[in-house]
Measured scan of single mutants.
Amino acid sequence: MPSETPQAEVGPTGCPHRSGPHSAKGSLEKGSPEDKEAKEPLWIRPDAPSRCTWQLGRPASESPHHHTAPAKSPKILPDILKKIGDTPMVRINKIGKKFGLKCELLAKCEFFNAGGSVKDRISLRMIEDAERDGTLKPGDTIIEPTSGNTGIGLALAAAVRGYRCIIVMPEKMSSEKVDVLRALGAEIVRTPTNARFDSPESHVGVAWRLKNEIPNSHILDQYRNASNPLAHYDTTADEILQQCDGKLDMLVASVGTGGTITGIARKLKEKCPGCRIIGVDPEGSILAEPEELNQTEQTTYEVEGIGYDFIPTVLDRTVVDKWFKSNDEEAFTFARMLIAQEGLLCGGSAGSTVAVAVKAAQELQEGQRCVVILPDSVRNYMTKFLSDRWMLQKGFLKEEDLTEKKPWWWHLRVQELGLSAPLTVLPTITCGHTIEILREKGFDQAPVVDEAGVILGMVTLGNMLSSLLAGKVQPSDQVGKVIYKQFKQIRLTDTLGRLSHILEMDHFALVV
Protein backbone atom coordinates (compact mmCIF):
# COMPACT_ATOMS: atom_id res chain seq x y z
CA MET A 1 0.00 0.00 0.00
CA PRO A 2 1.46 3.38 -0.95
CA SER A 3 2.14 6.01 1.69
CA GLU A 4 0.47 8.58 -0.54
CA THR A 5 -3.22 7.88 -0.95
CA PRO A 6 -4.36 7.56 -4.56
CA GLN A 7 -7.90 8.47 -5.51
CA ALA A 8 -9.95 5.39 -6.31
CA GLU A 9 -11.06 5.38 -9.92
CA VAL A 10 -14.78 5.39 -10.62
CA GLY A 11 -16.40 3.16 -13.21
CA PRO A 12 -19.03 4.43 -15.58
CA THR A 13 -22.09 2.52 -14.35
CA GLY A 14 -23.49 0.42 -11.52
CA CYS A 15 -23.14 0.57 -7.77
CA PRO A 16 -19.76 1.25 -6.14
CA HIS A 17 -20.21 -1.25 -3.36
CA ARG A 18 -20.43 -4.54 -5.20
CA SER A 19 -19.28 -7.42 -3.06
CA GLY A 20 -16.32 -9.40 -4.23
CA PRO A 21 -12.77 -8.55 -5.29
CA HIS A 22 -12.46 -4.92 -6.29
CA SER A 23 -11.00 -3.78 -9.54
CA ALA A 24 -9.33 -0.47 -10.12
CA LYS A 25 -12.79 0.76 -11.10
CA GLY A 26 -14.25 -0.27 -7.75
CA SER A 27 -16.59 -2.95 -9.13
CA LEU A 28 -16.46 -6.64 -9.98
CA GLU A 29 -13.79 -7.49 -12.50
CA LYS A 30 -13.97 -10.74 -14.44
CA GLY A 31 -11.16 -12.10 -16.56
CA SER A 32 -7.96 -14.08 -16.46
CA PRO A 33 -5.59 -14.07 -13.44
CA GLU A 34 -3.14 -12.12 -15.58
CA ASP A 35 -5.78 -9.45 -16.24
CA LYS A 36 -6.58 -9.21 -12.54
CA GLU A 37 -2.93 -8.96 -11.59
CA ALA A 38 -2.48 -6.14 -14.07
CA LYS A 39 -5.63 -4.23 -13.12
CA GLU A 40 -6.12 -4.80 -9.41
CA PRO A 41 -4.89 -1.86 -7.30
CA LEU A 42 -2.69 -2.01 -4.23
CA TRP A 43 -5.63 -0.77 -2.21
CA ILE A 44 -8.97 1.01 -2.50
CA ARG A 45 -9.87 3.95 -0.31
CA PRO A 46 -12.57 3.19 2.29
CA ASP A 47 -13.86 6.74 1.78
CA ALA A 48 -14.13 6.61 -2.03
CA PRO A 49 -17.06 8.68 -3.36
CA SER A 50 -20.30 6.73 -3.40
CA ARG A 51 -21.96 5.93 -6.71
CA CYS A 52 -25.08 4.49 -5.10
CA THR A 53 -28.21 5.13 -7.17
CA TRP A 54 -30.77 5.05 -4.32
CA GLN A 55 -33.18 7.97 -4.29
CA LEU A 56 -36.22 8.53 -2.12
CA GLY A 57 -39.29 7.68 -4.20
CA ARG A 58 -37.43 5.64 -6.81
CA PRO A 59 -39.17 2.30 -7.58
CA ALA A 60 -37.63 -0.73 -5.87
CA SER A 61 -37.69 -2.54 -9.21
CA GLU A 62 -34.89 -0.25 -10.42
CA SER A 63 -32.49 -1.39 -7.67
CA PRO A 64 -29.38 -3.13 -9.09
CA HIS A 65 -29.10 -5.31 -5.98
CA HIS A 66 -30.39 -8.69 -4.87
CA HIS A 67 -32.86 -8.13 -2.03
CA THR A 68 -33.98 -10.46 0.75
CA ALA A 69 -36.86 -10.38 3.21
CA PRO A 70 -36.88 -11.32 6.91
CA ALA A 71 -37.66 -15.03 7.22
CA LYS A 72 -39.44 -16.75 10.08
CA SER A 73 -37.10 -19.05 12.03
CA PRO A 74 -37.83 -22.79 12.09
CA LYS A 75 -38.19 -24.57 15.43
CA ILE A 76 -34.82 -26.26 14.92
CA LEU A 77 -32.15 -24.14 13.26
CA PRO A 78 -29.94 -25.85 10.63
CA ASP A 79 -26.92 -23.90 11.89
CA ILE A 80 -26.15 -20.92 14.12
CA LEU A 81 -26.17 -18.48 11.19
CA LYS A 82 -29.97 -18.75 11.18
CA LYS A 83 -29.91 -17.02 14.58
CA ILE A 84 -28.81 -13.78 12.93
CA GLY A 85 -31.62 -11.25 12.72
CA ASP A 86 -35.12 -11.21 14.22
CA THR A 87 -33.79 -9.47 17.35
CA PRO A 88 -36.21 -8.33 20.08
CA MET A 89 -37.63 -4.86 20.62
CA VAL A 90 -37.67 -4.07 24.35
CA ARG A 91 -39.30 -1.18 26.20
CA ILE A 92 -36.93 0.94 28.31
CA ASN A 93 -39.02 1.67 31.39
CA LYS A 94 -36.93 3.54 33.95
CA ILE A 95 -34.30 5.61 32.15
CA GLY A 96 -36.77 7.53 29.98
CA LYS A 97 -38.83 8.53 33.01
CA LYS A 98 -35.69 9.44 34.96
CA PHE A 99 -34.75 11.99 32.29
CA GLY A 100 -38.25 13.35 31.85
CA LEU A 101 -39.20 11.81 28.51
CA LYS A 102 -42.90 11.88 27.68
CA CYS A 103 -42.58 9.48 24.74
CA GLU A 104 -42.20 5.71 24.70
CA LEU A 105 -38.54 4.62 24.52
CA LEU A 106 -37.83 1.28 22.82
CA ALA A 107 -34.54 -0.60 22.32
CA LYS A 108 -33.74 -2.80 19.31
CA CYS A 109 -31.43 -5.30 21.04
CA GLU A 110 -28.89 -6.32 18.39
CA PHE A 111 -26.72 -8.14 20.93
CA PHE A 112 -29.18 -11.05 20.60
CA ASN A 113 -27.63 -11.93 17.24
CA ALA A 114 -25.59 -15.15 17.20
CA GLY A 115 -22.20 -13.42 17.42
CA GLY A 116 -23.39 -10.78 19.86
CA SER A 117 -23.69 -7.68 17.68
CA VAL A 118 -25.46 -5.86 14.87
CA LYS A 119 -22.43 -6.60 12.68
CA ASP A 120 -23.45 -10.26 12.39
CA ARG A 121 -26.09 -9.12 9.89
CA ILE A 122 -23.65 -7.48 7.48
CA SER A 123 -21.01 -10.19 7.91
CA LEU A 124 -23.38 -12.93 6.81
CA ARG A 125 -24.87 -10.78 4.05
CA MET A 126 -21.44 -9.88 2.60
CA ILE A 127 -20.42 -13.55 2.56
CA GLU A 128 -23.71 -14.74 1.05
CA ASP A 129 -23.61 -12.09 -1.68
CA ALA A 130 -19.96 -12.90 -2.45
CA GLU A 131 -20.82 -16.60 -2.69
CA ARG A 132 -23.82 -15.84 -4.89
CA ASP A 133 -21.78 -13.86 -7.44
CA GLY A 134 -18.96 -16.42 -7.47
CA THR A 135 -16.35 -14.30 -5.72
CA LEU A 136 -15.94 -16.49 -2.63
CA LYS A 137 -15.09 -20.12 -3.31
CA PRO A 138 -14.36 -23.06 -0.99
CA GLY A 139 -10.89 -22.75 0.53
CA ASP A 140 -10.63 -18.98 0.01
CA THR A 141 -9.41 -16.54 2.66
CA ILE A 142 -11.46 -13.66 4.10
CA ILE A 143 -9.49 -10.63 5.34
CA GLU A 144 -11.19 -7.68 7.02
CA PRO A 145 -10.07 -4.48 8.77
CA THR A 146 -12.47 -4.01 11.69
CA SER A 147 -12.94 -2.70 15.21
CA GLY A 148 -13.82 -6.26 16.19
CA ASN A 149 -17.56 -6.89 15.87
CA THR A 150 -17.55 -7.31 12.09
CA GLY A 151 -14.54 -9.58 12.58
CA ILE A 152 -16.46 -11.72 15.05
CA GLY A 153 -19.41 -11.94 12.66
CA LEU A 154 -17.14 -12.89 9.75
CA ALA A 155 -15.18 -15.39 11.86
CA LEU A 156 -18.44 -16.98 13.01
CA ALA A 157 -19.70 -17.34 9.45
CA ALA A 158 -16.27 -18.47 8.22
CA ALA A 159 -16.18 -21.19 10.89
CA VAL A 160 -19.55 -22.51 9.71
CA ARG A 161 -18.83 -22.09 5.99
CA GLY A 162 -15.23 -23.31 6.10
CA TYR A 163 -13.21 -20.24 5.10
CA ARG A 164 -9.88 -19.08 6.47
CA CYS A 165 -10.38 -15.75 8.26
CA ILE A 166 -7.80 -13.04 9.04
CA ILE A 167 -8.92 -10.05 11.12
CA VAL A 168 -6.89 -6.82 11.28
CA MET A 169 -7.83 -4.58 14.21
CA PRO A 170 -6.39 -1.60 16.13
CA GLU A 171 -4.65 -2.20 19.45
CA LYS A 172 -7.26 -0.26 21.46
CA MET A 173 -9.92 -2.91 20.88
CA SER A 174 -10.74 -5.09 23.86
CA SER A 175 -8.98 -8.32 24.77
CA GLU A 176 -12.39 -10.01 24.96
CA LYS A 177 -12.90 -9.44 21.23
CA VAL A 178 -9.48 -10.94 20.54
CA ASP A 179 -10.26 -14.00 22.69
CA VAL A 180 -13.58 -14.60 20.94
CA LEU A 181 -11.96 -14.23 17.51
CA ARG A 182 -9.24 -16.73 18.41
CA ALA A 183 -11.82 -19.17 19.76
CA LEU A 184 -13.64 -18.96 16.41
CA GLY A 185 -10.41 -19.86 14.62
CA ALA A 186 -9.59 -16.44 13.18
CA GLU A 187 -6.04 -15.21 12.77
CA ILE A 188 -5.51 -11.74 14.27
CA VAL A 189 -3.19 -8.90 13.31
CA ARG A 190 -3.04 -5.80 15.55
CA THR A 191 -2.20 -2.29 14.32
CA PRO A 192 -1.40 1.02 16.08
CA THR A 193 -4.53 2.78 17.32
CA ASN A 194 -3.25 6.23 16.37
CA ALA A 195 -2.37 5.32 12.75
CA ARG A 196 -4.38 7.32 10.20
CA PHE A 197 -6.70 5.22 8.06
CA ASP A 198 -4.62 5.99 4.93
CA SER A 199 -1.33 5.03 6.58
CA PRO A 200 0.34 1.74 5.56
CA GLU A 201 0.39 0.87 9.29
CA SER A 202 -3.38 1.31 9.78
CA HIS A 203 -5.78 -1.63 10.01
CA VAL A 204 -7.01 -0.74 6.52
CA GLY A 205 -3.48 -0.50 5.10
CA VAL A 206 -2.27 -3.74 6.68
CA ALA A 207 -5.37 -5.63 5.51
CA TRP A 208 -4.77 -4.58 1.90
CA ARG A 209 -1.09 -5.52 2.14
CA LEU A 210 -2.09 -9.00 3.33
CA LYS A 211 -4.64 -9.30 0.53
CA ASN A 212 -1.95 -8.50 -2.04
CA GLU A 213 0.32 -11.18 -0.54
CA ILE A 214 -2.13 -14.06 0.10
CA PRO A 215 -3.52 -15.98 -2.91
CA ASN A 216 -7.31 -16.34 -3.22
CA SER A 217 -7.93 -13.82 -0.47
CA HIS A 218 -10.70 -11.23 -0.39
CA ILE A 219 -11.45 -8.07 1.55
CA LEU A 220 -15.24 -7.91 1.65
CA ASP A 221 -14.76 -4.28 2.69
CA GLN A 222 -17.55 -3.22 5.02
CA TYR A 223 -16.66 0.43 4.34
CA ARG A 224 -17.60 0.18 0.64
CA ASN A 225 -19.72 -2.94 0.29
CA ALA A 226 -23.39 -2.36 -0.56
CA SER A 227 -24.24 -5.53 1.36
CA ASN A 228 -23.61 -3.52 4.54
CA PRO A 229 -26.50 -1.03 4.28
CA LEU A 230 -28.57 -3.54 2.28
CA ALA A 231 -28.58 -5.97 5.21
CA HIS A 232 -30.26 -3.31 7.33
CA TYR A 233 -32.51 -1.98 4.56
CA ASP A 234 -33.85 -5.48 3.87
CA THR A 235 -34.07 -6.93 7.40
CA THR A 236 -33.33 -4.65 10.36
CA ALA A 237 -35.57 -1.83 9.13
CA ASP A 238 -38.40 -4.21 8.21
CA GLU A 239 -38.20 -5.83 11.65
CA ILE A 240 -38.44 -2.41 13.31
CA LEU A 241 -41.47 -1.46 11.20
CA GLN A 242 -43.19 -4.77 11.96
CA GLN A 243 -42.44 -4.61 15.68
CA CYS A 244 -43.71 -1.02 15.88
CA ASP A 245 -46.69 -1.62 13.57
CA GLY A 246 -45.24 1.08 11.34
CA LYS A 247 -45.57 3.71 14.07
CA LEU A 248 -42.36 5.41 15.20
CA ASP A 249 -41.41 9.07 15.40
CA MET A 250 -37.66 8.96 15.98
CA LEU A 251 -34.80 6.52 15.48
CA VAL A 252 -31.43 7.03 17.20
CA ALA A 253 -28.34 5.09 16.10
CA SER A 254 -24.62 5.44 16.74
CA VAL A 255 -22.51 5.52 13.58
CA GLY A 256 -19.35 3.65 12.59
CA THR A 257 -19.19 2.47 8.99
CA GLY A 258 -22.63 4.02 8.60
CA GLY A 259 -24.25 0.91 7.16
CA THR A 260 -26.74 0.51 10.02
CA ILE A 261 -28.11 4.05 9.99
CA THR A 262 -28.02 4.30 6.18
CA GLY A 263 -29.93 1.08 5.54
CA ILE A 264 -32.51 1.60 8.28
CA ALA A 265 -33.01 5.30 7.54
CA ARG A 266 -33.55 4.79 3.81
CA LYS A 267 -36.32 2.24 4.46
CA LEU A 268 -37.91 4.40 7.15
CA LYS A 269 -37.85 7.45 4.86
CA GLU A 270 -39.80 5.36 2.35
CA LYS A 271 -42.27 3.73 4.73
CA CYS A 272 -42.49 6.17 7.64
CA PRO A 273 -41.49 9.59 6.25
CA GLY A 274 -42.31 11.51 9.42
CA CYS A 275 -39.72 9.60 11.48
CA ARG A 276 -36.71 11.72 12.45
CA ILE A 277 -33.30 10.03 12.10
CA ILE A 278 -30.71 10.95 14.75
CA GLY A 279 -27.02 10.09 14.26
CA VAL A 280 -24.61 9.67 17.18
CA ASP A 281 -20.90 10.35 16.66
CA PRO A 282 -18.22 10.29 19.42
CA GLU A 283 -16.09 13.34 20.17
CA GLY A 284 -12.84 12.90 18.25
CA SER A 285 -14.60 11.49 15.17
CA ILE A 286 -15.49 13.46 12.03
CA LEU A 287 -18.70 11.78 10.84
CA ALA A 288 -21.20 14.35 12.12
CA GLU A 289 -22.62 17.30 10.22
CA PRO A 290 -22.38 20.27 10.20
CA GLU A 291 -18.58 20.17 10.31
CA GLU A 292 -18.49 22.59 13.28
CA LEU A 293 -19.77 19.77 15.51
CA ASN A 294 -16.50 17.90 14.96
CA GLN A 295 -14.22 20.73 16.10
CA THR A 296 -12.40 19.50 19.20
CA GLU A 297 -8.88 19.06 20.51
CA GLN A 298 -9.72 15.46 21.38
CA THR A 299 -8.40 12.94 18.88
CA THR A 300 -8.91 9.64 20.73
CA TYR A 301 -11.83 8.03 22.54
CA GLU A 302 -12.38 4.82 24.48
CA VAL A 303 -15.80 3.77 23.18
CA GLU A 304 -15.39 1.10 20.50
CA GLY A 305 -17.06 0.42 17.18
CA ILE A 306 -18.28 3.93 16.34
CA GLY A 307 -16.67 7.03 14.85
CA TYR A 308 -13.89 7.34 12.25
CA ASP A 309 -11.32 9.78 10.93
CA PHE A 310 -12.76 9.39 7.41
CA ILE A 311 -16.24 9.23 5.87
CA PRO A 312 -16.95 5.61 4.82
CA THR A 313 -18.34 5.17 1.33
CA VAL A 314 -21.50 3.40 2.55
CA LEU A 315 -22.49 6.23 4.92
CA ASP A 316 -25.28 8.34 3.42
CA ARG A 317 -25.39 11.41 5.64
CA THR A 318 -28.28 12.92 3.65
CA VAL A 319 -30.76 10.60 5.41
CA VAL A 320 -29.71 11.77 8.89
CA ASP A 321 -31.91 14.63 10.11
CA LYS A 322 -29.73 15.68 13.04
CA TRP A 323 -26.37 14.72 14.53
CA PHE A 324 -25.32 14.69 18.18
CA LYS A 325 -21.82 14.23 19.59
CA SER A 326 -21.27 11.91 22.55
CA ASN A 327 -18.39 11.53 25.00
CA ASP A 328 -16.86 8.54 26.75
CA GLU A 329 -18.05 9.40 30.25
CA GLU A 330 -21.73 9.60 29.33
CA ALA A 331 -21.41 6.55 27.05
CA PHE A 332 -20.12 4.29 29.81
CA THR A 333 -22.34 5.82 32.49
CA PHE A 334 -25.46 5.15 30.41
CA ALA A 335 -24.26 1.66 29.41
CA ARG A 336 -23.86 0.76 33.09
CA MET A 337 -27.27 2.33 33.75
CA LEU A 338 -28.88 0.19 31.04
CA ILE A 339 -27.39 -2.90 32.65
CA ALA A 340 -28.21 -2.01 36.27
CA GLN A 341 -31.67 -0.49 35.78
CA GLU A 342 -33.06 -2.19 32.67
CA GLY A 343 -31.17 -5.51 32.68
CA LEU A 344 -29.91 -4.89 29.14
CA LEU A 345 -26.41 -6.38 28.89
CA CYS A 346 -25.16 -3.99 26.20
CA GLY A 347 -21.85 -2.39 25.22
CA GLY A 348 -20.50 1.14 25.43
CA SER A 349 -21.82 2.39 22.08
CA ALA A 350 -25.33 1.53 23.28
CA GLY A 351 -24.68 3.92 26.15
CA SER A 352 -23.74 6.63 23.64
CA THR A 353 -26.98 6.04 21.77
CA VAL A 354 -29.24 6.22 24.82
CA ALA A 355 -27.36 9.23 26.24
CA VAL A 356 -28.22 11.08 23.03
CA ALA A 357 -31.75 9.66 22.84
CA VAL A 358 -32.78 11.16 26.20
CA LYS A 359 -31.71 14.56 24.82
CA ALA A 360 -33.09 14.27 21.30
CA ALA A 361 -36.42 12.75 22.36
CA GLN A 362 -37.24 15.65 24.68
CA GLU A 363 -39.11 17.13 21.70
CA LEU A 364 -41.45 14.11 21.47
CA GLN A 365 -44.81 14.07 23.20
CA GLU A 366 -46.90 11.47 24.98
CA GLY A 367 -48.09 8.84 22.54
CA GLN A 368 -45.00 9.18 20.35
CA ARG A 369 -42.23 6.62 20.08
CA CYS A 370 -38.42 6.67 19.93
CA VAL A 371 -36.42 3.58 18.93
CA VAL A 372 -32.73 3.23 19.82
CA ILE A 373 -30.31 0.68 18.35
CA LEU A 374 -28.22 -1.18 20.94
CA PRO A 375 -25.37 -2.54 18.77
CA ASP A 376 -23.48 -5.07 20.88
CA SER A 377 -23.08 -7.00 24.11
CA VAL A 378 -21.22 -6.29 27.34
CA ARG A 379 -19.38 -9.58 26.70
CA ASN A 380 -16.79 -7.60 24.72
CA TYR A 381 -16.00 -5.20 27.57
CA MET A 382 -15.80 -7.21 30.80
CA THR A 383 -12.35 -5.82 31.60
CA LYS A 384 -13.24 -2.32 30.40
CA PHE A 385 -16.24 -0.19 31.38
CA LEU A 386 -17.83 -3.02 33.37
CA SER A 387 -14.80 -2.88 35.69
CA ASP A 388 -14.85 -0.24 38.45
CA ARG A 389 -11.06 -0.22 38.43
CA TRP A 390 -10.90 0.52 34.71
CA MET A 391 -13.48 3.27 35.10
CA LEU A 392 -11.47 4.80 37.95
CA GLN A 393 -8.21 4.60 36.06
CA LYS A 394 -9.74 6.32 33.03
CA GLY A 395 -11.32 9.02 35.18
CA PHE A 396 -14.95 8.02 34.50
CA LEU A 397 -15.57 7.16 38.17
CA LYS A 398 -14.46 8.90 41.36
CA GLU A 399 -13.16 7.19 44.48
CA GLU A 400 -16.14 8.42 46.48
CA ASP A 401 -18.46 6.60 44.06
CA LEU A 402 -17.23 3.28 45.49
CA THR A 403 -18.03 2.01 48.96
CA GLU A 404 -15.64 -0.94 49.40
CA LYS A 405 -13.18 -0.75 52.30
CA LYS A 406 -9.77 0.64 51.37
CA PRO A 407 -6.31 -0.01 52.95
CA TRP A 408 -4.82 2.58 55.32
CA TRP A 409 -2.57 4.13 52.67
CA TRP A 410 -5.30 4.54 50.02
CA HIS A 411 -5.89 8.28 50.46
CA LEU A 412 -2.25 9.28 50.97
CA ARG A 413 -0.74 11.50 48.27
CA VAL A 414 1.94 10.31 45.87
CA GLN A 415 4.20 13.13 47.08
CA GLU A 416 4.40 11.41 50.48
CA LEU A 417 6.46 8.64 48.88
CA GLY A 418 9.41 11.06 48.70
CA LEU A 419 10.29 10.08 45.13
CA SER A 420 13.53 11.33 43.60
CA ALA A 421 13.89 12.59 40.02
CA PRO A 422 14.17 9.62 37.63
CA LEU A 423 16.97 8.75 35.27
CA THR A 424 16.15 10.10 31.79
CA VAL A 425 17.68 9.47 28.37
CA LEU A 426 17.74 11.47 25.14
CA PRO A 427 16.09 9.95 22.05
CA THR A 428 19.34 10.26 20.09
CA ILE A 429 21.48 7.91 22.17
CA THR A 430 21.82 4.34 20.94
CA CYS A 431 19.93 1.30 22.15
CA GLY A 432 23.21 -0.34 23.15
CA HIS A 433 24.26 2.64 25.28
CA THR A 434 20.80 2.85 26.89
CA ILE A 435 20.94 -0.83 27.88
CA GLU A 436 24.36 -0.25 29.47
CA ILE A 437 23.03 2.74 31.44
CA LEU A 438 19.95 0.91 32.71
CA ARG A 439 21.96 -2.13 33.79
CA GLU A 440 24.58 0.04 35.48
CA LYS A 441 21.95 2.00 37.43
CA GLY A 442 19.78 -1.05 38.16
CA PHE A 443 16.68 0.32 36.40
CA ASP A 444 14.19 -1.53 34.19
CA GLN A 445 12.87 1.55 32.40
CA ALA A 446 13.48 5.26 31.91
CA PRO A 447 11.61 8.25 30.46
CA VAL A 448 12.84 9.52 27.10
CA VAL A 449 12.96 13.33 27.02
CA ASP A 450 14.15 15.83 24.45
CA GLU A 451 16.69 18.56 25.17
CA ALA A 452 13.90 20.88 26.35
CA GLY A 453 12.78 18.30 28.91
CA VAL A 454 9.56 17.35 27.10
CA ILE A 455 8.59 13.73 27.76
CA LEU A 456 8.49 11.75 24.51
CA GLY A 457 7.74 8.34 25.96
CA MET A 458 9.21 5.47 27.96
CA VAL A 459 11.83 2.90 27.12
CA THR A 460 12.08 -0.45 28.90
CA LEU A 461 14.97 -2.86 29.15
CA GLY A 462 12.75 -5.83 28.28
CA ASN A 463 11.34 -4.24 25.14
CA MET A 464 14.78 -3.20 23.89
CA LEU A 465 16.25 -6.66 24.43
CA SER A 466 13.34 -8.41 22.71
CA SER A 467 13.51 -5.96 19.78
CA LEU A 468 17.23 -6.63 19.42
CA LEU A 469 16.75 -10.40 19.54
CA ALA A 470 13.96 -10.19 16.95
CA GLY A 471 16.18 -8.12 14.66
CA LYS A 472 13.78 -5.17 14.67
CA VAL A 473 16.56 -2.80 15.79
CA GLN A 474 20.34 -2.85 16.02
CA PRO A 475 22.46 -1.77 19.04
CA SER A 476 23.58 1.24 16.99
CA ASP A 477 20.00 2.42 16.34
CA GLN A 478 18.67 5.39 18.27
CA VAL A 479 16.56 4.55 21.30
CA GLY A 480 13.77 6.67 19.85
CA LYS A 481 12.86 3.67 17.67
CA VAL A 482 11.74 1.56 20.64
CA ILE A 483 9.94 4.02 22.92
CA TYR A 484 6.44 3.51 24.27
CA LYS A 485 4.52 6.63 23.28
CA GLN A 486 1.43 5.68 25.27
CA PHE A 487 1.91 5.73 29.01
CA LYS A 488 -0.02 6.71 32.11
CA GLN A 489 0.79 9.92 33.97
CA ILE A 490 0.03 10.70 37.58
CA ARG A 491 0.49 13.87 39.63
CA LEU A 492 2.15 14.26 43.02
CA THR A 493 -1.21 15.37 44.40
CA ASP A 494 -3.01 12.20 43.25
CA THR A 495 -3.74 9.47 45.77
CA LEU A 496 -1.90 6.19 46.14
CA GLY A 497 -5.26 4.55 45.50
CA ARG A 498 -5.35 6.02 42.00
CA LEU A 499 -1.72 4.95 41.46
CA SER A 500 -2.66 1.45 42.64
CA HIS A 501 -5.41 1.19 40.02
CA ILE A 502 -3.01 2.29 37.27
CA LEU A 503 -0.35 -0.24 38.28
CA GLU A 504 -2.92 -3.05 38.27
CA MET A 505 -3.29 -2.52 34.51
CA ASP A 506 0.07 -1.04 33.48
CA HIS A 507 3.67 -1.89 34.31
CA PHE A 508 4.59 1.68 35.23
CA ALA A 509 3.28 5.22 35.62
CA LEU A 510 5.13 8.48 35.16
CA VAL A 511 4.87 11.02 37.99
CA VAL A 512 4.70 14.54 36.52
Rank of each mutant, 00 (worst) to 15 (best):
P2W: 10
P2S: 10
V10S: 11
G11M: 04
P12W: 08
H17S: 09
S19K: 15
S27W: 12
S32G: 06
D35T: 11
D35S: 07
E37H: 08
K39F: 04
K39C: 07
I44C: 04
R45Q: 10
P46R: 01
P46G: 01
D47N: 12
Q55L: 09
R58W: 12
P59I: 14
A60Y: 10
S63F: 12
H65A: 01
H66F: 09
A69W: 01
A71L: 11
A71S: 14
A71C: 01
S73A: 12
P74L: 12
I76F: 01
L77C: 07
I80E: 05
M89Q: 01
V90A: 04
N93E: 01
G96Y: 05
K98V: 10
F99P: 01
F99L: 07
E104R: 03
L105Q: 03
A107F: 03
K108I: 01
K108F: 01
C109N: 08
F111A: 04
N113F: 01
A114Y: 06
A114G: 12
G115A: 14
S117G: 05
V118F: 06
V118D: 01
K119R: 06
D120R: 01
D120V: 01
R121W: 03
S123D: 01
L124S: 11
R125T: 05
T135W: 15
L136S: 01
L136D: 01
G139A: 03
G139M: 06
P145T: 05
P145G: 10
P145V: 03
T146S: 04
T146D: 04
S147L: 01
G148F: 06
G151S: 04
I152E: 05
L156W: 15
L156I: 12
A157V: 08
A157S: 13
A157I: 06
R161E: 04
Y163W: 01
Y163S: 01
R164I: 01
C165L: 07
I166V: 12
I167L: 10
M169G: 06
M173W: 01
S174A: 09
S175W: 08
E176P: 01
E176A: 08
K177L: 03
V178L: 04
D179T: 11
V180Y: 01
V180L: 11
V180W: 01
L181P: 05
A183I: 04
A183T: 10
A186H: 01
A186F: 01
A186V: 09
E187G: 01
V189A: 12
R190C: 01
T191A: 01
P192L: 03
P192R: 10
T193N: 15
A195G: 04
F197I: 12
S199P: 01
P200W: 10
E201W: 15
E201A: 03
S202A: 09
V204I: 01
G205A: 01
R209C: 08
R209P: 01
R209Q: 13
L210I: 07
L210C: 07
K211C: 05
N212L: 12
N212Q: 09
N212F: 08
N212D: 12
E213R: 15
E213I: 08
I214F: 07
I214W: 06
N216M: 01
S217H: 01
I219Q: 01
L220W: 03
L220E: 01
L220K: 01
R224Y: 01
R224P: 06
S227T: 15
L230R: 04
L230E: 15
A231F: 07
H232C: 01
D234H: 01
T235I: 10
A237E: 15
A237N: 07
L241G: 07
Q242G: 14
C244L: 06
C244A: 01
D245S: 09
D249G: 14
L251S: 01
V252A: 07
A253N: 08
S254Y: 03
S254I: 06
G256L: 05
G259D: 01
G259R: 14
T260P: 03
I261Q: 01
T262V: 10
T262R: 01
K267S: 04
K267L: 12
E270W: 06
K271V: 09
C272V: 14
G274S: 06
G274I: 09
C275Y: 01
